[in-house]
Design a protein around this nucleic acid. Structure first.
Lengths: 174, 174
DNA sequence: ACCTGAACACCGTTCAAGT
DNA sequence: ACCTGAACACCGTTCAAGT
C-alpha cells in the first residue's frame, strides 16, 4: 500500500470516528508516524484526500444501490441505510462540490445509475427521487427532526407518492 | 444597535459574500474596528454568532413560506427561491444541528408551519415535502446536478407526484 | 526518494492589564 | 464597562536541509 493510500485510509477512519474537523494534515501524519510536511511528497494537499474520500463514497454507494435492485422502496431503504452507517462519509460525498477532474471516471454516473433505472429512465423522476432521499437523510443526520419523529413514515409516504405517480416509476423501461 | 448585533450583521454579510471559512472572529472584529478578544465581552463565542444566524434564517424562511400561501407549487417555489437568494445562510440553517436552547422560541415551528399547513396537517407528508425541497436545494447549491440540468423539471415532477397522492396534499384541512 | 525542523500566515479563545 | 497585547494550542502549506 502506498503512503497516499495509507493517508486516505487514516483520513477515512478519523473522519468517521471523530468528524471532519479532526481530519487534519498533522493528525494524518501522526497516524502514519511521520511529520505533516512529509505528506506533501505523496499528495498535493488536503483537497486531494477529501476528493479521494468522495470517490470512495460514490463507488460504495453505487455498489449498495445496485444490490438493492429496482424496487423503489428497497432502493430508498438501501440509500438511507448506507448513509446512516457512514454518516460523515455520506455528508462529505453529498454536500460539497465534486472535483470532477480528479474523480474516477464514471464514479458519479455509477452512483446515479440505480436511481435512473428505478425511475424507468425518466431523468426528472430520478432527480426527484435523489433529492428526496438526500434531503431526508441529510436532515436526519443533522438532527433536524424532533426527537422521536417517525422518519420512516415520511419515507414511506414519499416513496408511495412517487411510486404511484405516472409516468410509471418503480418499473424499468427495458 | 448593540455590539452583539453589529457582530452578527457583519457575520451575515461576510458569510453570504465570502463563505463560511471567511467568518472568523478576527475578521468580524476588524469589521467593527476592534480586536478579536474584545468580542468575547459581548458574545460567548463563535457558536453564539452562528446560532444567531440560524435563528435569522429560520425567521426569514418562515416569512417567505407563509407569504407563498397553501399551494404546493408556490410553496416549493418560495422555498427554492429563498435558498438560492441566500445560499450560504440557507446551508448554515439547514445542514447543521440547531442549538435549540438558544434559538428564539418557536422559530423552528414557525418555519415548519407553512409546510404542515400545505400538507393538510399530515406530518409524514409535510416531512416528505421538506425532505424533497431541502434535498433538491442542497444538491443544487452544492453544484451536484450536471451543468445545464433541468432542475425545474425535477421539482415539477416531484411536486405533482406529492400533490396527486392521497391523502390529499395541497389542500388545507381547515 | 523520503523525511525533517523551522517558518509563515492563519485559527478560537483566555487573561492580565490598561482606560 | 470596554478594549488591548500577549499568549496558548492549534491550522495548511512551503522550503531548505538532511539521509
Amino acid at each position: 500500500m502506498t503512503r497516499r493510500d495509507e493517508a486516505i485510509d487514516a483520513a477515512e477512519r478519523t473522519l468517521e470516528r471523530e468528524g471532519l474537523p479532526a481530519v487534519t494534515m498533522r493528525r494524518l501524519a501522526d497516524e502514519l508516524g511521520i511529520r505533516a510536511p512529509s505528506l506533501y511528497k505523496h499528495l498535493a494537499g488536503k483537497g486531494e484526500i477529501l476528493t479521494a474520500l468522495q470517490d470512495r463514497a460514490l463507488a460504495r454507494m453505487a455498489t449498495a444501490l445496485a444490490a438493492a435492485g429496482n424496487d423503489l422502496g428497497g432502493l430508498a431503504g438501501a440509500y438511507r441505510q448506507w448513509a446512516l452507517l457512514h454518516p460523515r462519509l455520506y455528508e462529505l460525498s453529498a454536500r460539497y462540490p465534486l472535483d470532477r477532474d480528479h474523480l474516477t471516471p464514471g464514479a458519479e454516473d455509477a452512483a446515479a445509475a440505480p436511481l435512473i433505472r428505478a425511475a424507468g429512465g425518466n431523468i426528472a423522476a430520478a432527480r426527484a427521487l435523489w433529492g428526496l432521499a438526500h434531503g431526508l437523510v441529510d436532515l436526519e443526520l443533522a438532527g433536524r427532526f424532533p426527537p422521536g419523529a417517525d422518519i420512516t413514515a415520511a419515507w414511506d409516504y414519499a416513496i408511495r407518492a412517487l411510486g404511484e405517480f405516472p409516468p410509471p416509476v418503480g418499473t424499468a423501461s427495458d
